[in-house]
Amino acid sequence: MTSKKFAHLNWNDLRVFHAFANTDSVNSASRHLGVDNSTVSRRLLALEKSIDTMLIRRTRNGYKLTGDGIQLKSLVQEMTDGVENIQQWLKEKQTTLSGSVSISCCDISLPRLSLLIRHFQAKYPSVKFTIHATARLANMGANGVDLAIRATNHPDDSLVGICLEHFSFALAAPSSATHQDLLPWVGLNDGQQTLPSERWQGLEKLRCHSTLSTDSYLNVAQLIANGNGIGLIPEFIVRGDPLLQRFPTQSPLPEWQLWLLFQPQLRKSPVMRTFCDFLKVNWQVTHSTLNEELSPSPAC
């Protein structure tokens, strides 16, 4: 077999072979392709002749692929998958999302949310975002925000909810502190005493002789990192800050969840649907992985 013969390989014949190889039936292949049986048979014979290889064994019980036919089936399947991937890539490349998204989020979700929005806008620069960082549950709907990210173990069942993350709290201390240090307790203001961290009554909290309070977990973390005391904050904040360390506790620590919430009708919006799916897939991806995925390729 010469390379000259390969130059005349008909890709349409391979498409016919692929349809036949998936069913071992001329009738099924012809129905799938929308042509008559004789066309399928003729194209299969033409393919065998063009590559000088028997691909199909014709028996009284029907058709069977030869060993070469089985190998070619696998190769053509890879080609088909590649074409489908290219088509999907072109479709995504040609799709231009535009619109506005307003989000109400709790403070502990803001660092990760802002990072993901940056990467989302790198792909869809025509989408505009408005962020309301607040501990209060914002109004949702026509006169409110589109999406809300809330820390709760009991999301509103009238909304569509996507659980972004399960997390536990940690007893955080300055990285330079020791267990013997009698540091003040850093917590949240009186208006937030129903939150899990404030209801916790571990021995480490009870032995603190003075307290310091602020209005958000990020501020609690900053005060602890500055050496003002110890306190309960989400474990992922401690893990990501070299100025903080985790102290062991004798009492079990509370757990919480982060939920993405929105009205059911917003799934009809391409912008909302695409962004919500993006958050669901990428929320727990580490910062370094996200940066590697979207960083520019080195120059050749």
Rank of each mutant, 00 (worst) to 15 (best):
D68A: 11
Y124H: 14
M140W: 10
L110W: 11
H132F: 08
S168D: 11
G141E: 12
D181C: 01
K73G: 00
H132S: 09
D157Q: 07
V76A: 01
D107V: 05
I108W: 02
C163V: 14
K123M: 12
D156G: 06
L203E: 10
G191F: 09
S104W: 08
P155R: 11
G82L: 00
L72S: 01
L206A: 10
A138G: 06
G67C: 01
Q77Y: 04
S102H: 08
P174K: 14
G187A: 09
K73I: 00
Q87V: 06
Q180M: 02
R207W: 00
H154F: 15
C106Y: 14
E204A: 09
H179T: 06
S98W: 03
R136Y: 07
L182G: 01
D107H: 11
G67P: 01
E84W: 01
V83L: 12
L113T: 13
R136L: 08
I86Y: 03
A172P: 12
S126V: 05
D146R: 12
G99T: 09
Q77S: 07
I162L: 11
G144A: 11
T178N: 11
S102G: 03
E198I: 15
L147P: 07
S102C: 07
S197K: 05
L188W: 08
K93D: 08
A151K: 08
I162N: 07
